[in-house]
């Protein structure tokens, strides 16, 4: 569960990125966070992952208060999140399986746990056959599915996807969204940050629209009007 209560964020250079954001994402939801470039989407992402802290207001992520979280608790909070990036961020010199085991090892998982969990996650994303291939041998859509598998492998409460389809063609983008929808159906909360109007409008999900650091609409089964807002 994520709660933003009157959150402001002003950077050191004086840029006011967020101006009183109020937002609540409950467990099991599928939410699109949309808005034009510079609207504050990335700031929200960074706040949720604990890279930056709010200037004002209260922020809770999966039971952790990020206003007064200690540096030692940040890794524990991050384990409740799975993060997917536009550029996949896979380790090129590691195979698909190794990329996943790398993520699990980072939180101290045992070899036994890794064997069990990686097989399951690869089946879920449909890449069981590609376990021993390197990212460079995969298509863009497959690489993003590996990134999703990596986000999922530590069994997080929530997956945050930052422009997950930004580097993909429309059909691959749709596949990725459908995969995220399926993961959501299995119980994981999904937050997708995007500005792809067509893709958002294909799914009748909750759409939170942010503009100039303020949330200007929050509708379930909503419709995104893109840059025209």
């Amino acid at each position: 569960m994520i709660r933003f209560i009157d959150v402001y964020k002003e950077y050191d250079n004086g840029t006011k990125a967020l101006k009183g954001v109020n937002m609540r994402i409950d467990d099991g939801e599928f939410v699109f966070l949309v808005g034009p470039s510079g609207s504050g989407k990335s700031t929200i992402m960074k706040l949720i992952t604990g890279e930056i802290s709010p200037t004002e207001g209260k922020l809770m992520v999966n039971g952790y208060s990020l206003n007064n979280i200690s540096p030692k608790q940040i890794p524990l909070m991050r384990r409740t999140l799975g993060i997917v990036f536009q550029d996949f961020r896979l380790i090129e010199k590691k195979t698909v399986h190794e990329n996943l085991s790398f993520a699990m090892r980072a939180i101290g998982a045992s070899n036994r746990d890794m064997r069990k969990r990686i097989g399951y996650v690869l089946r879920l994303v449909g890449l069981e056959e590609k376990a021993h291939q390197y990212p460079g041998q995969l298509s863009g859509g497959e690489q993003q599915r590996v990134a999703i598998a990596r986000a999922l492998v530590n069994n997080p409460n929530m997956i945050i996807a930052d422009e997950p389809t930004g580097n993909l063609d429309p059909s691959r983008s749709l596949e990725i969204m459908m995969l995220l929808e399926r993961i959501n159906e299995l119980g994981t909360t999904i937050l997708v940050v995007t500005h792809e109007m067509n893709l958002v409008n294909k799914f009748a999900k909750r759409v939170v629209t942010i503009q100039e650091g303020r949330i200007i609409s929050d509708e379930t089964g909503g419709y995104y009007h893109g840059e025209k807002i």
Partner: peptide, 16 residues
């Protein structure tokens, strides 16, 4: 640095 960024994103502790 890329691997370390991924590790941190996954919740690796500083000591790890």
């Amino acid at each position: 640095r890329e691997e370390i960024a991924i590790m941190k994103m996954c919740g690796a502790t500083n000591s790890f």
